[in-house]
Amino acid sequence: MTKAHVYKRDHVNTDEIIPARYLTTDDEAELAKHCMEDLDAEFVSKVKPGDVIVAGEDFGCGSSREHAVWAIRGAKIQTVIAKSFARIFYRNAINCGFYLVESADAVDKIRDGDELEIDFRAGAIKDKTTGADITFGALPDFALEIINDGGLLEHIKKSL
């Protein structure tokens, strides 16, 4: 079951996703314990594997720390749905092989607690709670190729 955790705000930044006081480790499971801590102290205790984060514009702004993606992935979050993403976060996610959904329509329609079904390749979300069908622009081909390969390093390894 994929449940939506909606944060109705813009500019959710990397310091909120994973505060710098935890950057002395790059262990994903350890980072996951503090995921979103300064924004929502309850986050880690309420999310279940496969859930998604929903937020407004400019998600992931701030630091280049890939720890932000690792913390979210470590918390077993399936994807982040946002109106827009900060560029380094967006790039880091693709490089890690982690899907993102950029869609203002989806953010406007999905309510906190809604149950979702997401098809990344088709660019489709089914909101099973409200019955809404939402479409979104899938990632560009080169990004899908990187994700398909299992991330940027596996991707470049092919040509080394």
Binding site: S64, R65, I88, R91, N95, C96, G151, L152, L153, I156
Partner: peptide
């Protein structure tokens, strides 16, 4: 420009 760790590795 600034990059994350995977880009840095590449």
């Amino acid at each position: 420009t600034g990059i994350g760790s995977t880009d840095l590795a590449a």
